[in-house]
């Protein structure tokens, strides 16, 4: 089925891109989610702003106490980047497992989270890492924690005139494990389990419900897998019923905790 018609802009700077963005003129990078949604008629922009020619959106840099990942970096780029491997290895792990090899080459990390598909591998890990996202409009810049950025399926705190320019991960980033159960293109259940740098542990259960569910514990032995499985709100679909997904959630939380305990 053909795509509906649109105008294509190709700015060379983030400022030029931001000046174009509004409700009908959308940021476009890999297109792995946007073009599909347009083909299905779910989104009908009159224009797309191609971000791929904007070098400043494609950098991965180390600050004094943060790792900054440009929103335009592809999943492959993030997965293979030396700074990410050294400072936020869990994100590299998850990025290596996103979608399929073509999606990883085409799709950007910023596009992934702006689309806010509830089964995003990236979202689950960013919540575990206490990441914030940087949003820039013509008149303002703001930094939003990942937990406040994701508001629901396909719904984020980003305003139409804002561009997500970078993802900021505070350092030292927690180390941990990312486990998921997946039979199709996206996970049925994803669990990130990390040891927090200030002490304690965090379990994030993603993909199974509309939003990631996060819980912190003083001890790993305090993690209650059954409680987490009761707290998620699974969406019944072809990959399983609500009851089945709660069961898989409990199993994968237990496995993630065991893997984290075993790795320490």
């Amino acid at each position: 089925m053909p795509l509906p018609a649109f105008t294509l802009h190709r700015p060379r700077s983030a400022a030029d891109a931001i000046a174009l963005l509004d409700e009908d003129c959308l940021a476009y990078s890999g297109g792995t989610e946007l073009l599909m949604a347009m083909r299905m008629g779910l989104i009908r922009p009159t224009a797309l702003v191609d971000l791929k020619r904007i070098d400043e959106l494609n950098t991965i840099t180390l600050g004094a106490d943060r790792l900054l990942i440009g929103a335009g970096a592809s999943h492959d780029r993030v997965a293979g980047d030396a700074l990410v491997a050294e400072h936020a290895a869990l994100l590299a792990t998850a990025e290596r497992l996103v979608g399929n090899a073509r999606v990883r080459a085409q799709g950007s990390i910023g596009g992934n989270i702006c689309f806010a598909e509830p089964r995003s591998d990236v979202a689950t890990v960013l919540v575990a890492l206490d990441a914030t996202v940087l949003l820039q409009s013509a008149s303002s810049r703001r930094s939003v924690p990942a937990t406040e950025f994701f508001l629901g399926p396909y719904w984020t705190a980003r305003e139409p005139g804002e561009l997500l320019t970078a993802i900021s991960i505070p350092l030292p980033a927690p180390a941990g494990v990312y486990l998921k159960f997946q039979t199709v293109e996206r996970p049925t259940v994803a669990v990130a389990a990390v040891a927090l740098p200030e002490g304690g542990y965090r379990i994030v259960v993603g993909a199974v419900g509309d939003l990631p569910v996060s819980a912190d514990y003083a001890q790993l032995t305090a993690v209650d897998a059954a409680d987490l499985a009761a707290r998620v709100e699974p969406v019944s679909d072809l990959t399983g019923s609500e009851r089945y997904k709660r069961h898989v959630t409990e199993v994968f939380v237990r496995r993630a905790v065991a893997a984290l305990a075993g790795g320490r």
Binding site: M1, L8, G31, T32, L35, M36, R39, D76, N100, A101, R102, V103, A105, Q106, E185
Partner: peptide, 23 residues
């Protein structure tokens, strides 16, 4: 035409892409 099946795989600058979902 949903970049799931892979029959449209081609390489752009050496990287694999789904030609069905690529401008």
């Amino acid at each position: 035409e949903m970049q799931v099946c892979g029959v449209c795989s081609v390489l752009v600058d050496g990287e694999p892409v789904s030609a069905c979902t690529y401008l």
